[in-house]
């Protein structure tokens, strides 16, 4: 059994919260720069230039890329040979979020009671945490600060198996079209297909953690990612919705086996500040 102190998890989490919010990953930065080359609309190009400059200012001056420094979302793969000392995983992660958001001058965007009082918790906790127990003695922490504007443009639909590929395409493209400029395009579109009502939403979220440029490992689904991406860009919505050819930078699909009666589908949208980081401890 490997012994691991909760403080080690907290230290990593605090550092990840700050880093992810200030330094946009090279995968997304490259996609933005590539889209500047291919964009046809002058207004769209102007927006992309501002976004690239924004990434550079954030890095050089240590300013968060976006003022919405997000809901702290974690996927943890916990090696079953690791024993955590001095606290629970949840406490350790939340302690890291608390410290990272305070020390990093990040915005605290979480309210406690979602309906009535909506009082800010003051430290951006609690985080949303998904945990998988895996073989081995390592811990992998993946983190994304998820902005509210793009998160609001998300949906789950319980399609019928007979709806087939066309049903998935229609659902996603129509949904993204309705979202239009709201989720800060160019967007990254996370799609879940399969599983249950709850599982498919998590799949769509997980799809947003995949580096831009990587495809689904199954070539059939990789091809579907491309079809949907082209259809979305053909809507003409463009950067920030001002019109253009770059509405989305990428479409990522995650899949899971399905019940014989179901074909669940989910869309989770990320803005161009598609921030994600991982650490293996």
């Amino acid at each position: 059994m490997r012994e691991l102190a909760a403080s080690v998890i907290s230290d990593h989490v605090a550092e990840m919260c700050q880093r992810a919010n200030i330094y946009l990953g090279e995968d997304v930065f490259k996609a933005l720069k590539d889209s500047l080359e291919s964009e046809e609309s002058p207004t769209g190009k102007e927006v992309l230039k501002q976004l690239i400059e924004n990434v550079e200012i954030a890095r050089n001056e240590q300013i968060p890329i976006c003022q919405d420094t997000g809901f702290a979302v974690f996927f943890v793969e916990w090696g079953q040979e690791v024993h955590l000392n001095d606290g629970t995983l949840e406490e350790a992660i939340n302690a890291g979020v608390r410290r990272g958001y305070e020390e990093g001058y990040l915005r605290k965007s979480i309210v406690d009671d979602p309906l009535y009082k909506r009082k800010n918790t003051g430290d951006n906790t609690p985080a949303v945490i998904y945990t998988d127990i895996v073989p081995g003695d390592k811990v992998k922490i993946s983190f994304a600060p998820k902005g509210g504007g793009s998160e609001n443009m998300s949906a789950v639909k319980m399609l019928k198996p007979s709806d087939g590929e066309a049903g998935v395409i229609d659902f996603v493209v129509n949904h993204v079209k309705a979202a239009g400029p709201n989720p800060c395009p160019p967007i990254v579109v996370g799609i879940g297909i399969g599983g249950t009502f709850d599982k498919v939403a998590v799949l769509a979220k997980k799809a947003l953690f995949r580096p831009v440029g990587e495809t689904h490992p199954d070539s059939v689904f990789a091809a579907l990612e491309k079809i949907i991406l082209n259809k979305i860009n053909d809507l003409g919505v463009g950067p920030q919705g001002f019109g253009g050819r770059t509405f989305a930078l990428a479409v990522h699909i995650e899949t899971f086996p399905s019940h014989i009666a179901s074909m669940a589908a989910a869309v989770n949208i990320n803005c161009h500040a598609c921030r994600h980081l991982e650490r293996i401890i």
Partner: peptide, 26 residues
């Protein structure tokens, strides 16, 4: 304004002062 260009836009703001509802934080 360009959504998600928070760092760039912050450079265009020269002065900021809370004038009401400080309890609302951001």
């Amino acid at each position: 304004a360009v959504g998600g260009a928070g760092a760039l836009l912050s450079k265009k703001i020269k002065k900021s002062e809370v004038v009401a509802y400080p309890e609302l934080g951001p």
